[in-house]
Nucleic acid binder design. Sequence first.
DNA 1: CATACGTGGCC
DNA 2: TGGCCAAGTAT
Length: 365
Amino acid sequence: MKKTALANLDAFNKETFRQDLIGWFEQEQRTLPWRQDQDPYKVWVSEIMLQQTRVDTVIPYFNRFIEQFPTIEALAEAEEDKVLKAWEGLGYYSRARNLQAAVREVHEHYGGRVPDNPKEISSLKGVGPYTAGAILSIAYGIPEPAVDGNVMRVLSRILSIWEDIAKPATRKIFEEAVRELISHENPSFFNQALMELGALICTPTSPSCLLCPVREHCHAFYEGKQSELPIKTKNKKQKDVQIAAVVLRDREGRYLIRKRPEKGLLANLWEFPNTEISLAFLHEKDQLAELIKEQYGAIIETAEMTGQIDHVFTHLTWHIHVYKGTLLSLEEERSDLKLVTEEELKEFAFPVSHQKMLKHVQEHK
DNA sequence: CATACGTGGCC
DNA sequence: TGGCCAAGTAT
């Protein structure tokens, strides 16, 4: 433990802090679908969905997911395409594939029981230090830290920790702080309360300190510096990528779609034929038809440009130049290519960018 | 350690 | 509007 960062713990009344924090949580916690019981599987699913994702966004996905895959066994035995379809629109799709891979591991090698110790649970795909601690504490009542962005923000203020929370190494400082502070009587509520406080009171901008149940324990509030914490360095600017994409239909009106590679961006999702292209060639229709032929073996009729869609990811922006065209023929049978009707299209998981593209072309007429 | 990895909401 | 944010993990 860094002594300088946690020096304030010495003069800190841990027991009243725990009582004030947990007491507030018992009164004020939101009713959420994953708080109905402590089923380790449901806690697990909720924690994966909540990674980098807002509670309001997750709620409907969680309800549908649990309805469709109610148990470890149900998810283990599902087709991956069904799981991705259930995740469609939620983002960070490797979470879904890692979750299913890990659930299959639990099904096959742990008798369907989610591990209850740090070593085994941390070995599961997609389960990092935060998620391991969250499941162990919430589902099993084990006093392990669950340090997420909320916890770092809340504790940086309470304990006056001025380390950069954007740096990976900083998380360890907060884990040590939680190990010192955590209630062994109720580690589940302690961890959840810290996060709930961050979500409802100790917010990133303009925290509601006058409503805060632990403001008397808060070093930043005492010094009036709550708006200066936490320290978080800025991200770099993202890249721009030009894409030419074409919504192709054959003479029977079926759409040509392709499954993306199993690694990388939007892995294993479906999409419309597209190619990265330099700005200089954007309006060369023959060039686009040639590239589509090379990459898809698809012979197409001169495509018509229908507009542009910009789609922002965390680390890059796609500028999608959208065309529509007719598929004349396919050179070979390929397992990553399918011709599907408009009705069948609904069964495949598409990234939001390609959903926008389809809508755009259908409204173009 | 830095970067890849989604999306929607907010100001 | 563009940047920032939201219950992180893998490499």
